[in-house]
Amino acid sequence: MSSSIHINPDARGWTHEGSRAKNEGKVLAFHETLPDYNKTPLHSLPDVARELGLGHVLVKDESNRFGLPAFKILGASWAMYRAVGWHLGIPVAEGQVSIAELGAKARKAAVEIVTATEGNCGRAVARMGKYMGIPVRVWVPSFMPEATRELIRGENAEVTVIDGSYDDLIPIISEEADDKDTILILDVSFEEFIDVPKVGWNSISLSSYHR
């Protein structure tokens, strides 16, 4: 499987507004409003520390982030919150609009989310859609186990299986996102992505774009 790297030349003109710490504070405050928020634990590995000649080695356990077995929900939630707000013309950069309120406005505007996934990212996007009460359609490759598909469906998402690889899903969901009320959320980029979110949207793990 081969992939291409696409570079947006306009990115050279972007500027960073505000400090990194300030932006991170906004994202943390937002995450703390989500259901099931908890700090992830640190586990000490004393044997590894001794072997490396270090005082301590700590591992951050992200195996139960918001009840999901991956950290992807961190980026997915913030990216969707910002993308939906941007789409509706509602300023949400400071996290002053609750996900319930934003979701209600999105439902009234018939907004829906589309994404493609091999597993964790799509389920995270679907979970955020469930939090906000807006529909999410997820395209997956045929090699994805049925059990994984069921986990995504369990987040109230519609799952469509395509015979092929992850890369084969991109042109399909690109066409799906042509609808004016459809927002495309992905953790990869491709050539036709034009409007790229400002600094902080994907500061955790996930890129989000809207055609």
Rank of each mutant, 00 (worst) to 15 (best):
P145F: 06
V138C: 03
L58G: 07
E146H: 13
R123A: 02
M80V: 14
N23V: 15
Y37Q: 07
G55Q: 11
V48G: 07
G119K: 02
A11K: 06
E175F: 05
R50S: 12
L184S: 03
M132K: 06
A100E: 15
R137D: 12
F143T: 13
E62T: 02
N120M: 02
A116G: 04
S63C: 06
R137H: 10
L186M: 10
K105A: 15
I113Q: 01
D36C: 07
K72E: 00
V114D: 00
E176F: 04
V57W: 05
A21T: 13
A106W: 04
M128G: 05
G89F: 05
I185W: 00
V138P: 01
D47S: 12
T148K: 15
R65E: 01
G119Y: 05
F143P: 06
G55I: 07
E192V: 05
W14F: 09
S77A: 10
A157R: 00
S203C: 15
M128P: 04
S4E: 15
M132N: 03
R50Q: 11
R82F: 05
T148Y: 14
V125D: 01
P145I: 09
I152F: 06
A116H: 00
G18S: 04
E112S: 15
L186W: 02
K39M: 09
Y131G: 07
D168A: 06
N156H: 14
V111S: 01
F143C: 11
L102N: 02
D178S: 11
T182G: 03
H6E: 12
L68F: 04
G129W: 03
L102H: 02
N8A: 09
S19L: 10
L52H: 08
G154V: 00
V97P: 03
S208M: 14
A49R: 05
A104E: 15
Y166A: 01
R211V: 12
G122F: 00
P41S: 04
I194K: 10
K60S: 00
D195V: 13
N120G: 03
N156D: 14
A76E: 01
I7C: 11
F143R: 09
L45R: 13
M80T: 11
T117P: 00
R82S: 13
P197N: 10
A104K: 06
S19F: 05
L169D: 01
L42Y: 15
K72I: 00
L42F: 14
K72F: 00
G103E: 07
P197A: 15
L52I: 06
S3D: 13
L102G: 04
E62K: 07
A29E: 11
E118Q: 14
D195H: 12
P46G: 01
R65S: 01
E191F: 10
R50L: 06
H56Q: 15
G89P: 05
W78R: 13
A76D: 01
A157P: 02
V59Y: 11
G133P: 07
S98T: 08
A147I: 15
T33P: 07
H6G: 08
R50Y: 06
A109C: 10
I5P: 08
R149V: 07
T117N: 02
I185H: 00
D187W: 05
L68E: 03
K72S: 01
E101T: 03
V59I: 12
C121F: 13
I5W: 09
A100Q: 15
F143I: 12
S205D: 11
T148Q: 15
G95P: 03
A79I: 09
D10E: 12
H87P: 08
L45M: 12
I134F: 02
G122T: 02
K39P: 08
